[in-house]
Simulated scan of single mutants.
Amino acid sequence: MPFHIVVLPGDGIGPEVTQAARQVLDAAAAHYKLTLNYTEHLIGGCAIDQLGTALDDATLAECQQADAVLLGAVGGPKWDDPTAPVRPEQGLLALRKGLGVFANLRPVRVYPALIDASPLRPEKLRGVDLLVVRELTGGLYFGQPKRRLEENGRRGAVDSLFYWDYEIERVVELAFQLAAARRGRLASVDKANVLETSRLWRQIVQQVAQRYPQVQVEHVLVDTAAMRLVASPAAFDVIVTENMFGDILTDEAAVLAGSMGLLPSASLGAAGGGLYEPIHGSAPDIAGQGIANPLGAILSAALLLRYGLKQESAARAVEQAVERALQEGCRTRDLGGSLSTQAMTEAVLERLSFEHPS
C-alpha cells in the first residue's frame, strides 16, 4: 500500500534539511519495499509571498488526508514584524490545529561522542535520555480572548490561558503510556502554586495516574524543572507539560545535546499520521550555503517511520546510523566539524544497516 507524505519545506534552511530527510526515507523505502508518494507545498513566509497566507486551505486539506507531514521550518527576518496581520508562525499554528495534533514529542538524548559539545560539564550529561511531551493545541497560544487595549492614552494587551479537562487528559494519558514503555518515571510540570489551569492540570494527572500504578509520578513546578534540567538532567525520563512551558523547556533541553540541529520532534493526535519537524528554526543566516545540520530532520524522519508509518525497524536503523556517524567523527559546522549538509546526509546513508524485512 502506498504512503502519502506531504512535504512542507518552508523557509530558510527548511528546503535543505527536508531534502536530506527525504533521502533517508527513500533508502528505508527501498529496503522495506515501501511506496512513498510525496507532494510538496508552501508554508510560512514563502507562502505569504506567493499566496498571501501562511497556509492555504488546499494545503491544509491535503495534509489532513496524508499519512504523515514532514515540515522544515518557517520564518525569517523578511517577515519578522510582530504587528503584521499575516505572519509565518500562523501557518504552523493553523497546521497543528487543523491536523488535531495535541501532543508534541521531543526526545533529548546526549550522544557520548558529543558530550563535550554541550556547555554543561560532562558528568552532568552522562545518561541523559529524556522525552518531553508538550501539549500543543491549548493554553496561551490559542486561548481567547486575545486583544490589544487602549485607554486614557495607555496601551495594554490580553492573552488568555485556557484549558478544558479533556485537552489535558489526552496528552497526559499519552505521556503515561510512553513512560510505561520506557523507564517508568513521569514528571508533570506545572505552576500550580499560582495558576488555576495548573491546579486543574495537576488534578487530572493524579486521576490518570491511578490507571498506571507502574509509573512513578512527580509534580514539578516549572521554575524548578528549568533548574533541574541544567543541574541534574539525567534524573528525568518523561516530562509532560502544557504548551508554553513545553515550548520553553524543550529549547532549554536542546542545549544538553550540544546543538539544536540535532533534535527532532513528532506531533501526534488521535487520528494517526502526524507532523514531523526538527525543533530548530529557519536559520536564515546560513540558508542556501549547504552547511545546515540535517540530523534533526533525519531523526524526525525516523519518528515519521515509527509513529506515522508504523515501521519500527526502519526507525531504529535510522537512529543507529546517526549515532554511528557521530561516533565515527562526522560533524557539521555547528558541531565543530566541516561536513556539508549533503556530506553529513551521505555519512548517515552509508551507515544504514536495516534488519531483514518481516
Rank of each mutant, 00 (worst) to 15 (best):
A84Y: 06
A84D: 09
R87G: 07
P88S: 03
E89V: 01
E89P: 03
E89M: 01
Q90S: 00
Q90N: 02
Q90A: 04
Q90P: 01
G91I: 03
G91V: 01
L92S: 05
L92Y: 06
L93Y: 05
A94L: 01
L95C: 11
L95A: 11
R96K: 10
K97R: 15
L99Q: 02
L99C: 04
V101I: 14
V101C: 12
F102P: 00
F102D: 01
A103P: 06
N104L: 11
N104G: 13
P107R: 01
P107G: 02
V108A: 05
R109K: 15
Y111N: 07
Y111Q: 06
L114D: 08
L114P: 05
D116A: 11
D116Q: 15
A117T: 13
S118L: 07
S118T: 06
P119H: 06
L120A: 15
L120K: 13
L120I: 13
R121V: 09
R121Y: 03
E123D: 14
R126G: 07
R126T: 08
G127R: 15
G127L: 14
G127M: 14
V128N: 03
V128R: 02
V128G: 01
D129Y: 00
L130W: 02
L131I: 01
L131Y: 03
V132W: 04
V132Q: 03
V132Y: 06
V133A: 05
V133L: 07
E135R: 13
E135Q: 15
E135G: 14
L136E: 02
T137M: 12
T137K: 07
T137E: 11
G138T: 01
G139I: 04
G139C: 11
L140W: 09
Y141G: 09
Y141V: 10
G143H: 06
Q144C: 05
P145F: 10
P145R: 05
P145E: 11
K146V: 05
K146L: 06
R147S: 11
R147F: 08
R147Y: 09
L149V: 12
E150F: 11
E151K: 11
N152C: 11
G153F: 04
R154E: 13
R155E: 09
R155N: 08
R155S: 12
G156V: 09
G156F: 13
A157G: 05
A157E: 06
V158T: 10
S160Y: 14
S160N: 09
L161I: 05
L161S: 05
F162P: 04
F162E: 12
F162M: 10
F162W: 14
F162L: 15
F162D: 14
Y163R: 01
Y163T: 02
W164E: 14
W164T: 10
W164P: 00
D165N: 05
D165P: 07
Y166Q: 09
E167Q: 09
E167A: 04
